[in-house]
Each structure stands twice: as structure tokens, then as C-alpha cells.
């Protein structure tokens, strides 16, 4: 049943992606946090301060089923932020404890500068790697106190560093954009950030940034799928009240 649901989901995404590509009008969601990114970079340009960017601990590797995709989603958005920074002459400093993400980050940032016609603007010194959570956190806190970045962007798989970085950012008065699909860190990000991408919004944000109609079509497919799940929850709730386990048995097949 799980395989069947996966195939149906993929078919639904593909259907809406093809429809969008053929020119059908797709009304996709927009995210205030994504819309605030140019403001965050503009603020840094006005203040002459850098932008701090991190994708969180992510359990220290991309090879983690829960955090790896979040890190990748964060890196996707990093490309967009780096391009804006390059365009506005703003320095962006990226901090990570995820060693296997380094080549991707380097390539993403280099390409972003290249696409803005500013290849000499890229400097590997602005990619800061620290092995493990505590050194990463200590280095980030030190950086925030020394450099006082105008904006703090935290998008990825976070653990307790979310509250520490968020509060440190608040202390220096940085504009903060956060986002994670780790439920245990969402309250901290919501409490400390000006804008937050909650759960699947983190994955969907890169689709909105890309702006390709077919990519936005997958968001539409996702929304339809949400209604299907909601309907299943409703039916399951009613059947549960009647002590009927038919739906549970079907889903467990």
C-alpha cells in the first residue's frame, strides 16, 4: 500500500507539473519568509554589514534521512541569497558542521557569483566549517559578536543551536529568517525569528524561488495531496468512532 501511495503521489506531482508546463494557470502559495530575503540582504547592504547563513547541525552529514534533505533545501536557497548578496555587494558568511556538504556549498556559491557576473567576488574564506555541534556554535557566536551581521538566515535541519543562534541574533539586532522541518526546534525558530518557514515550506521555498511553472506545479500537486490526507483523516476519525478498522487495515496492507 505504501508503494502504491508513493506512486500515486509521484503521478499527481507529475500531472500538475506537466499541466503547468503546458501553460495551465497554477495558483501556488507564496511565503512571506522568501519575500523577506531581499529585504534582509538590502538591510545588510544599507548597514554595510555581512549576512550570516547556516543550514544547521543536520546531524553532521547529508547521509541522514531526516536532516539531509533539509540541508539540501537550505543549500538551494543559499544559491538565491548568494546571488542577491553578490548583486548588492554584500558579504555572505556561511557556517556549517556538515563536512560532506562543503563541495556542494562551494559549488553553489561559486556558481551564484558567476551567474551575477562577479566570479572574483567568491572567496572560500567565507565558507566556515567546524566539526561537530559545539565548535560550530561557538564559532558562530563569536562571529556574531565580532562582525554583528545585519541579517541572520537559518534554514535547514536544526537542533539546540536554533535557540542559541536565534537569541544571539536578537541580541545584536539582526533581522532573522529561520526554517526547519524538525518539529522540536520550530517553537524556538518561531519565537526568535522575524519570519519562519515551517516544515514543508522549507522544501517548497526553493520551488517558489525557482519560479518555473512546472516546479510550481509540484506545489499544487502537494496541496491536492494534503486535501486527500485530510479526507483520509476525517474518514478514519468517523470510522474510528464506529469502531470500524477497515481503513486502518487497508493502509497497513
Amino acid at each position: 500500500m505504501a508503494l502504491l501511495l508513493l506512486v500515486i503521489s509521484f503521478a499527481l506531482f507529475y500531472f500538475y507539473m506537466v499541466r503547468a508546463k503546458k501553460g495551465a494557470e497554477i495558483s501556488a502559495r507564496t511565503f512571506p519568509a522568501v519575500a523577506a530575503i531581499p529585504e534582509a540582504v538590502g538591510r545588510a547592504a544599507e548597514m554595510g554589514k555581512p549576512v550570516y547563513y547556516t543550514t544547521g547541525l543536520g546531524m553532521g552529514t547529508l547521509n541522514n534521512p531526516l536532516n539531509g534533505p533539509q540541508t539540501l533545501a537550505g543549500i538551494s536557497i543559499l544559491g538565491h541569497v548568494t546571488r542577491l548578496c553578490s548583486r548588492n555587494g554584500v558579504r555572505i558568511d556561511y557556517f556549517t558542521p556538515i563536512v560532506d556538504s562543503l563541495p556542494l556549498v562551494e559549488e553553489t556559491m561559486r556558481t551564484a557569483y558567476l551567474m551575477e557576473g562577479n566570479p572574483e567576488g567568491f572567496d572560500t574564506n567565507h565558507i566556515h566549517f567546524q566539526q561537530d555541534q559545539s565548535p560550530y556554535l561557538t564559532a558562530s557566536l563569536g562571529y556574531m559578536q565580532r562582525e554583528r551581521p545585519a541579517s541572520n538566515i537559518m534554514l535547514g535541519g536544526f537542533y539546540y543551536e536554533s535557540v542559541v543562534l536565534g537569541e544571539a541574533g536578537n541580541t545584536i539586532g539582526a533581522m532573522q529568517i529561520g526554517g526547519s522541518a524538525n518539529t522540536h526546534q520550530l517553537p524556538f525558530l518561531v519565537a526568535t525569528c522575524d519570519y519562519t518557514l515551517i516544515m514543508e515550506e522549507l522544501y517548497a521555498a526553493s520551488a517558489e524561488i525557482a519560479g518555473d511553472p512546472d516546479v510550481l506545479g509540484s506545489l499544487k500537486g502537494e496541496d491536492i495531496l494534503k486535501f486527500v490526507v485530510l479526507a483520509l483523516l476525517g474518514v478514519g476519525f468517523l470510522l474510528g468512532l464506529a469502531n470500524n478498522a477497515t481503513l486502518i487495515n487497508i493502509l497497513r496492507m
Binding site: 534533505p69 543549500i75 544559491g79 551567474m115 518539529t183 514543508e200 517548497a204 524561488i209 509540484s218
Partner: peptide, 30 residues
């Protein structure tokens, strides 16, 4: 949150498989 996160991950995975996501390739966002 967990359910919506899983749905988002499915869509993200599908876009990645089709080469529509730049994250794992190290390409700058469009």
C-alpha cells in the same frame, strides 16, 4: 506538522529526481 513535512519531502524528492532542485547538484538557485 509531521504529515505535512512528509508530503513536502515527497514533492522535494520528486523534484530532485527530475533534476528540478539545485541543492544536491551545487547549482545556484534560479
Amino acid at each position: 506538522f509531521t504529515i505535512t513535512g512528509a508530503l513536502g519531502l515527497l514533492a522535494y524528492g520528486f523534484r530532485t529526481l527530475l533534476g528540478k532542485e539545485s541543492g544536491f547538484y551545487g547549482e545556484a538557485g534560479q
